[in-house]
Design a protein around this nucleic acid. Structure first.
Lengths: 212, 212
DNA sequence: TCGGCAATTGGCCAGGTGACCAATAGCGGT
DNA sequence: ACCGCTATTGGTCACCTGGCCAATTGCCGA
């Protein structure tokens, strides 16, 4: 009576339905928070009964974890396209510039919130924790590859690309830690830090990464 | 029947009882997480009925917020004693050294978890959010004072103590972001970053802050 | 000493959660 | 064309939460 699609029951291929559920859960997690990923919430996002979600994910933890992975993997692909070379004629420097411009934008706010959310929730949910660790490593490796590409062409000067990538990510995560609290205040020194650390780690002149 | 103190009802002064409740809640929040601060959990921590906690804190949000403030304020006083000069014959440099040694220790882990916890929970709880913002400013100001004291005696060289304090805190918060996930891996580049940033911001030679 | 105020009790409620299950109905294979 | 597998339904269950309230009882002041 309350559902708009009352009566119409559409049956989909298991893999397709499963993917659909994960995507819906990822959207909920990204916009409202991972703790809002409940069987019922995801269910009426899809116009479906809670039991169906429960059928594909007998344990809700698994859905939360997969939703997180789905969201962050997609985001990373948007920030730093895979592969040693970018799609067009891009240098590691221009890719890195674009990366810093993107993460400074307000569209990245939800992603910052998601990471914060996931890192805290990992305290209680081992399954999620494993996925978060995997994604942390993935993001770090992606940056490391970019740095390695840049040092190869003498654009960057960096003895240890892995350590540099770790430190850049620490600075980024530190900056986005305040997304739910002091986001409005003290923005200048905060948002600058990640870029500054990157420039220092890669032997770039100050403000090299500031603009496109 | 289930409570060990069944029958014995001790009546305390309102302010004392209230403080007792906040302290118990702070302990629960610090060790188990802020979402574990429930009326019942705090109540049987004190061997008391849930309704009593509910009486002093009609809204649970307020208790959570006050518990967070209580815990972090106590921790800050342990890390950086108030006042321009330390208790003994301490220089700003030795105080800062002790600070970095303390936050690198495992005793600080629960505090890192608490900050992460609070920053995420602030997304949903405005009351907590206000308290977190206050504490962020307090911690920042405390560090700023220390830096200012150091620049006064030419120990530190720093044009903008406030911006330096902000950046040092960003680095610290970035380092502690992984406390629930990759705490074990990649520790070296991570834990180094905060100290390195501080040394650079204050014009200190590398590794100056590494040991006592 | 004793009365009354308020701290404290102990129980209630509605709402939300994950997990579970029998019954139904859509769809692919024969 | 139809039959069987299974995706999907729709409901139930126990559990835990915060908020609420009348009754009780400890303690302070008169």
């Amino acid at each position: 009576m309350t559902s708009r699609d009352s009566g119409t029951r559409t049956r989909k291929a298991p893999t397709e339905r499963r993917q659909e559920i994960v995507r819906a859960a990822a959207l909920v997690g990204l916009t409202e928070g991972l703790e809002c990923i409940t069987l019922r919430r995801v269910a009426d996002e899809l116009g479906v009964q809670p039991g169906l979600v429960s059928h594909y994910f007998p344990a809700a933890d698994t859905l939360v974890a997969e939703a997180f992975t789905s969201a962050t993997r997609a985001e990373l692909d948007g920030l730093l396209p895979e592969g040693p070379a970018g799609p067009g004629h891009e240098t590691p420097l221009s890719t890195l510039r674009r990366f810093f411009v993107l993460i400074a934008g307000t569209e990245f706010d939800n992603v910052s919130k998601l990471w914060l959310n996931a890192r805290h929730l990992s305290r209680y949910r081992p399954v999620l924790r494993d996925h978060v660790v995997d994604q942390e490593l993935l993001w770090c490796r992606r940056i490391e590859q970019l740095i390695a590409a840049g040092t190869g062409t003498r654009l960057f000067h960096c003895a240890n690309p892995w350590a540099a990538a770790v430190r850049i990510l620490v600075a980024i995560d530190g900056s986005s830690a305040y997304i739910n609290t002091s986001a409005g205040a003290r923005t200048d020194p905060i948002s600058d830090l990640a870029r500054t650390v990157a420039e220092r780690e890669l032997g770039l002149a100050p403000d090299t990464l500031a603009t496109l």
